[in-house]
Design a binder for these strands. Structure first.
Length: 479
DNA sequence: GTCTAGTCGTCAT
DNA sequence: CGACTAGAC
């Protein structure tokens, strides 16, 4: 569910752009969204276990769109589920099973189109399908990673460290994870709405001027997020107003206790405060995979207190050892079971290969590089696009793309999950009263990391003429 | 104006 | 996943 209403509220500071703006840059893609859309047209086949390559074709079409524009895609997949989200996951699964059953009944009674409808409702992206796509990506020389847990955190990490210039996604959590640039709602022509962190202060409906990263995150969590439902009667607008006025969660909760409009008991708020801290830490210190060192890291490093402070950090999931992480995150092992995949191509991957192999009379697609005509963004308007991409599959000329480890360096002994040693709390959530009038000002100057891809451009929105210095906020530390 | 819970659509012919 | 909306405060 992401942050309810956030994207809608941030529309006014977004800018319509084409993905070709990222020419010669790396861009990370939230692959789940593309896979899910690609599954709809072959929902019936997938539900019945009939091999199909349509979902792979859908994703590869978009990958080739990017490569046509010399944009270098880095595909990111979801990994394991967090314990906190387990409930919703299982409810979704029950729902899907119900829909499949209904579809099968309709199919048996000869009602094909209605059955199709229920198959589409039952669409589910399985690890096997993801694996089939990964095999194809590997074959096509496209870089990809599997996140240890949430893809959102991984995507934000890649963008925040400068490994990529932007993220393509549909998920509002990218804002909570503070990805500096996100392209939302990208269509098959590459057109979408880009939301930049540095532009949030110019937003109309919800004004984030003078908001620190922590305040933005506080707003997001209070509005209701995947890890914590909002307080009754408080959603995005109210959360934003409260954070603007009182800055810290400690103060906000004290105010809410006194506010007669709401009838929160101290017990309510104490319980909420504890869950809030957990959600804050989950966003903040989420496990990610660092492609440069090929190790597990925290999105923002945990405060180092030499392990003195006790605390339950299991909600972050379990920290894989390095060997396991490399296997899982580079796509050689199942992210749930850590079981190594067979190197044998899946039926779907084979099917895709046999289809795509036909496009140039059996030639290796990698040898047909400049076949695609160069066309400008302006031409990409509305039509006559599709013809290009059946041919265009030049391997991304990725100067910085690390060679995908094809070796078995990733083979490893897989250890049983073990909880990570706890560290200090990053946010003291006082349930006891404290000074709340003039709260400390968290310095904004922590954001010093220079953006790797720095460029200037002039852009006009309906409301502003802005000279935009395109800097990424980098990694903000705010513990 | 604000919040909530529910329904619908994502593809592509 | 989000978008959209009817209905309650």
């Amino acid at each position: 569910m992401g942050i309810q209403g956030l994207l809608q509220a941030l529309k006014s500071s977004g800018q319509p752009i084409n993905v070709s703006e990222y020419k010669n840059q790396k861009v990370a893609i939230d692959t789940y969204g593309w896979l899910h859309k690609g599954c709809i047209q072959c929902a019936a086949e997938l539900a019945q276990g009939i091999p199909t390559a349509k979902y792979i074709q859908f994703v590869m079409h978009r990958v080739n769109l990017l490569r046509h524009f010399k944009v270098i895609p880095v595909m990111v997949f979801d990994g394991g589920f967090l314990p906190m989200k387990k409930e919703t996951e299982e409810e979704r699964r029950r729902n899907r099973e119900h829909n499949v059953q209904k579809a099968m009944e309709l199919l048996r009674s000869g009602n094909r189109s209605q059955a199709e409808d229920f198959f589409q409702r039952a669409v589910d992206v399985t690890p096997l399908m993801a694996h089939s796509l990964m095999q194809t990506l590997r074959e096509e020389g496209v870089e990809f990673f599997v996140a240890p847990y949430e893809a959102d955190a991984q995507l934000a990490y890649l963008a925040r460290t400068g490994y990529v210039s932007a993220v393509i996604s549909e998920d509002s959590d990218l804002i909570a994870y503070q990805s500096p640039r996100v392209l939302y709602k990208m269509d098959k022509f590459g057109n979408g709405l880009e939301i930049q962190m540095v532009r949030l202060p110019m937003n109309k409906d919800l004004n984030f001027n003078h908001f620190t990263p922590t305040m933005i995150l506080t707003t997001c969590i209070m509005a209701g997020c995947d890890y914590l439902p909002g307080l009754p009667g408080i959603a995005l607008k109210t959360a934003h107003r409260l954070v603007k006025q009182y800055r810290s969660i400690e103060c906000i909760l004290q105010i809410l206790l006194a506010e007669s409009k709401y009838s929160f008991t101290p017990q309510d708020l104490v319980a909420y405060a504890s869950k809030f801290q957990q959600a804050m830490r989950t966003f903040h210190h989420h496990y990610v995979y660092d492609p440069t060192t090929r190790t597990i890291q925290n999105l923002t490093p945990c405060p180092d207190t030499e392990g003195h402070v006790e605390g339950d950090w299991d909600f972050l999931g379990h920290r894989m050892d390095t060997a396991t992480a490399r296997s899982v995150c580079e796509g050689y092992a199942n992210p749930y079971t850590y079981e190594l995949y067979s190197t044998e191509p899946t039926a779907d991957a084979r099917l895709y290969r046999s289809h795509s192999g036909r496009r140039l009379s059996g030639q290796d697609p990698r040898e047909s590089v400049a076949a695609a005509p160069l066309n400008s963004v302006e031409l990409m308007g509305q039509r006559k696009v599709t013809s290009f991409f059946s041919l265009a599959a030049p391997p991304a000329v990725a100067p910085a793309a690390p060679a995908l480890p094809q070796s078995q360096a990733t083979r490893a002994e897989f250890k049983a999950p073990r909880p990570k040693s706890p560290e200090a709390g990053d946010l003291a959530l006082a349930t006891a009263p404290g000074p709340c009038g003039a709260k400390r000002l968290i310095s904004d100057a922590a954001d010093a990391e220079p953006a790797p891809a720095k460029r200037k451009r002039v852009r006009l929105s309906r409301y502003f003429a802005v000279l935009q210095d395109d800097t990424s906020p980098g990694n903000a530390e705010f513990d």
